[in-house]
């Protein structure tokens, strides 16, 4: 038998903690991508600047 939640779910400490942890991981992942994409942009831009016609 499936147990279902009715109405608006309430927040327990455990759920809040899980949400906080998910948000923190997501934040770190996004920050990592920001740094990575910045570095890729610098690398690609850098090589183009070196190779531009003078």
């Amino acid at each position: 038998m499936k147990e279902e939640f009715e109405g608006t779910p309430e927040w327990s400490d455990e759920l809040l903690a899980r949400r906080r942890k998910r948000a923190a991981v997501m934040g770190w992942v996004l920050a990592g991508f920001v740094v990575l994409f910045f570095l890729v942009t610098v690398v690609k831009l850098g090589s183009n600047i070196v190779q531009r016609a003078l």
Binding site: K2, S12, E14, L15
Partner: peptide, 17 residues
């Protein structure tokens, strides 16, 4: 606040809540 048993609800065919 109620503490939900995380092992009970199945993710398919259940209510939005």
């Amino acid at each position: 606040l109620p503490v939900f048993d995380t092992s009970v609800p199945r993710a398919d065919d259940v209510s939005d809540a």
